[in-house]
Design a protein around this nucleic acid. Structure first.
Length: 480
RNA sequence: CGGGGUGUGGCGAAGUUUGGUAUCGCGCUUGGUUCGGGACCAAGAGGCCAUGGGUUCAAGUCCCGUCACUCCGACCA
């Protein structure tokens, strides 16, 4: 059998050897994506898309529960509309794709393919909001956006990607601020409970915030290789866009006021995040709540009488409670085991002649390959428990990874030494608040500021760069 | 956008230095034996060697151009 395992090693690069290669191997071999002839864009295959649908569904439930409604905006944005907010256009100009012709006729005004839809929402809100009675407006849109990236990677950075963008307008800054924080908290809760992925909540530094925002909040996750990944953002805009787009309403005192605005989004990048958080050298490990198949039923010695029938019966029974799939192909059992491990299916159910005799089956956990011999009488409960346990276990593992790769440093030398000795991870270090220092840290140590975590800790009194009094503890890292 | 690398059946490669019949493994098809960790035997199908031009009796191989992909830097969810 050991000989057969060689095949496995050849097929997927070990994470320890080359994490980047491992990642591209996994997304392809687990059948999540395929490469497209359209440069820098990916084909999301049915299995990958099913994960996205589960993410969508569970996020959408949370949005609806907090009063949000889904809408759809146009794909194209006229140049004049994009130009209205100065910071915004400067931020996005380098990466927008332009439509210049309709058929063979040049357009009077070129249009970009949306890189994000703030401007469209702003225009719409300016039209529909007149009175304090019209507020708040809590809209969300599920769509695709285009950003002309130079280098691309499936799920992490591609020229077209799928996301959700929430856009809300409020009467007061307090209310908008509360919305911004609420949505960040929803993202964080979702990452932890649904994706089983720990995140750090914080606020971006001035230089790193969204183009046009007053403040950008984010959740940062740490991947298995110690690099950081921004998993979601929530922006507070104040009235910046409101002034540029003339979004006003009349308040109770009959005075004209600008609306206060937010936006927030997560993308298909979340799929990349969970791959790099939970995956191992056998492939994907999917959190049970977003696994398209939670239990795969594998009949053993399927030619023996009664096995297929029993496996079918079990599959039908379990389908009432779980996402179940049966594999009746004539591939060998061992091949199937490896196949569904590669695809990250949380539980494998083996049922063979011996089991049928004993009124039992074998359940095997994806994360640790532990085997359980389970009576068929109590199967649903056992499966539910094991799925829960697996979810908790991979969360704990990811949390332990994050903790063990988080380093507190009190000087630039320490940061450099930490990176050299311990490798990549989150570096916690004090900062004075000056952009020059932020840049210098990045230049000299290689790590960039990820966020100023909400959970602050005073590691020392002075900035690691300039030695002046420190204002914040910043989380630094090499990022995807 | 700068610096490397690679393009050969569906996938992964050898062959290129030194020009001479298109090779190997996986996968696929058919039949049989297997079946509790990537099975085995047998017989098949499948390629104008990325592309355009050149050199030559002869080009996957040498020369010039183009395109694509990929890795490393600068920009980004």
């Amino acid at each position: 059998m050991a000989d057969n395992n060689k095949k496995m090693v050849e097929e997927i690069t070990s994470m320890e050897v080359d994490f980047g290669r491992w990642y591209t191997d996994v997304v392809k071999k687990a059948d999540l994506v395929d490469y497209s002839s359209v440069k820098g864009c990916m084909i999301i295959r049915p299995y990958g898309y099913a994960i996205w649908e589960l993410i969508q569904k569970q996020l959408d439930e949370r949005f609806k529960a907090t009063g949000h409604e889904n809408v759809y905006m146009p794909l194209f944005i006229p140049e004049s509309l994009l130009q209205k907010e100065k910071d915004h256009v400067e931020g996005f100009a380098p990466e927008v794709a332009w439509v210049t012709h309709g058929g063979s006729e040049p357009l009077a005004e070129r249009m970009c393919v949306r890189p994000t839809s703030e401007t469209l929402f702003c225009e719409h809100y300016a039209n529909i909001v007149h009175s304090y009675r019209d507020l708040p407006k809590l809209y969300n849109q599920w769509c695709n956006v285009v950003r002309w990236e130079k280098t691309t990677r499936p799920f992490l950075r591609s020229r077209e990607f799928l996301w959700q963008e929430g856009h809300t307008v409020h009467a007061t800054a307090e209310e908008a601020q509360a919305e911004t924080e609420q949505m960040l908290n929803i993202y964080a809760e979702f990452c932890e409970n649904v994706l089983n992925m720990p995140v750090v909540k914080g606020v971006k530094t001035e230089s790193d915030k969204f183009a046009g925002a007053v403040a950008t909040y984010c959740i940062e996750a740490l991947m298995h290789d110690g690099k950081a990944l921004q998993a979601g953002t929530s922006h507070f805009f104040g009235d910046g866009f409101a002034k540029a787009f003339n979004m006003t309403y009349t308040d109770k005192e009959n005075k004209q006021q600008y609306v206060q605005q937010t936006s927030w989004g997560v993308t298909t990048r979340l799929i990349g995040a969970l791959i790099m958080s939970h995956g191992d050298n056998n492939g994907l490990v999917l959190p049970p709540k977003v696994a398209p198949t939670q239990v795969v039923v594998i009949p053993i010695a399927a030619h023996k009488p009664g096995v297929i029938e029993k496996a079918d019966e079990l599959t039908a029974r379990l389908a009432k409670s779980f996402r179940v799939k049966i594999d009746k192909t004539d591939n060998s059992a061992g091949w199937k085991f490896a196949e569904y491990e590669m695809k990250g299916v949380p539980l494998r159910l083996e049922i063979g002649p011996k089991d049928i005799e004993n009124n039992q089956c074998v359940l095997v956990r994806r994360d640790n390959r532990q085997k359980y011999f389970v009576s068929l009488d109590n199967l649903e409960n056992e499966i539910a428990n094991l799925l829960d346990e697996l979810g908790r276990a991979i969360y704990e593992k990811a949390a332990a990874n994050m903790e063990s790769k988080t380093y507190a440093c009190t000087s630039m030398e320490e940061i450099i030494a930490s990176r050299a000795e311990k490798g990549e991870g989150f570096v916690r270090a004090m900062w004075c608040g000056e952009e020059a220092c932020e840049d210098e840290v990045k230049e000299k140590t290689g790590v960039g500021s990820r966020c100023i975590p909400f959970a602050q800790e005073k590691l020392s009194d002075v900035c690691v760069c300039c030695g002046k009094p420190a204002k914040h503890m910043v989380l630094w890292a090499v990022a995807y």
